[in-house]
């Protein structure tokens, strides 16, 4: 884990409210990185006091000169980042947290990756890992959810992978592409069709989606790992601001820290 000044190398608008930002990183950054980990990033230059706190973002993709984040504009901090000039120095902290349990996913295992909205940032890091480690694409089932088709990111890239065996399913709220409805409809259908060969589910997205997904997985007795979000002040376990309830802990002290014990949790341990 590093605390480092990072240069904005590139910023690309993907939709009116999402963008990709490429940032420089120290030499050994990539070596330490586990898919699903995040960075805390300042959203203003050094010595700016407002906004004060760093913001958590999933590390989406490693690049030869650094890494990329995929960001959706939802408030002041992300809006400032969206207009950051190339060459600006940000203050970064990471990689932080525990990523997806990549070492327990066997190559013969069916893998279901479920991404809702900007949760795709975290899922891409996992997909990249699987490609790099030569997981057979025919075992990977990528399920994407978005409000509308124009918010589906990286769709061409995923479609190219379907030619190599990846299964891709899409749900949009308005039905402008793929299934009209929720990603969990797709998940539940696919789990029923394949009841004898349960996949391992790995997911990142809005909390209501994760909650529904976790319940489905528990019912189907599928192993399931969910990447949660929480308001964070520190990102490294010291402020106790980001806690969520965990079933494996005793009732008098039911909390785990999303930043330090997560952000990826075994769904079976969460109070869904």
């Amino acid at each position: 884990m590093f605390l480092f000044p990072s240069t904005v190398l590139q910023l690309t608008e993907l939709t009116p409210d999402t963008f990709r930002i490429r940032l420089s990183s120290p030499e050994n950054f990539a070596r330490q990185f586990i898919p699903g980990q995040f960075v805390m990033a300042s959203v203003a230059g050094p010595s700016h006091l407002d906004p004060l706190l760093k913001r958590p973002f999933s590390i989406c993709r490693l690049r030869p000169d650094g890494f990329e984040l995929l960001i959706k504009v939802v408030g002041r901090g992300t809006e400032i980042l969206q207009h950051m000039a190339i060459g600006t120095l940000l203050s970064l902290h990471g990689p932080l947290g525990n990523g997806y349990p990549v070492n327990v996913i066997g190559k013969d295992r069916k893998i279901m990756l479920v991404a809702g909205g900007i949760g795709i940032a975290s899922i891409i890091s996992l997909l990249d890992y699987c490609l790099e480690a030569a997981y057979p694409l025919k075992n990977i089932n990528l399920i994407l959810g978005a409000r509308t088709s124009s918010e589906l990111l990286y769709i061409d890239e995923f479609r190219q992978l379907t030619e190599k065996g990846l299964t891709l399913s899409i749900a949009t709220d308005d039905g402008s592409r793929g299934h009209r409805g929720l990603v969990t409809d797709l998940v539940s259908r696919q789990l029923q069709n394949n009841a004898e060969n349960n996949p391992i589910i790995l997911s990142c997205g809005p909390l209501p989606m994760l909650t529904a997904l976790g319940k489905l997985a528990v019912e189907a007795s599928c192993p399931c790992y969910l990447s949660l979000e929480s308001r964070m002040a520190c990102g490294f376990g010291v402020c106790l601001g980001c806690v969520t309830r965990n079933k494996t802990k005793d009732e008098k002290h039911p909390w785990v820290k999303v930043c330090h014990d997560g952000p990826v949790f075994d769904a079976a341990t969460l109070q869904l």
Binding site: R231, L240, C242, V243, T244
Partner: peptide, 11 residues
């Protein structure tokens, strides 16, 4: 939770 929220120049 929620236990924290950012406010101008503070939390």
């Amino acid at each position: 939770p929620p236990r924290i929220v950012e406010t101008p120049c503070g939390m």
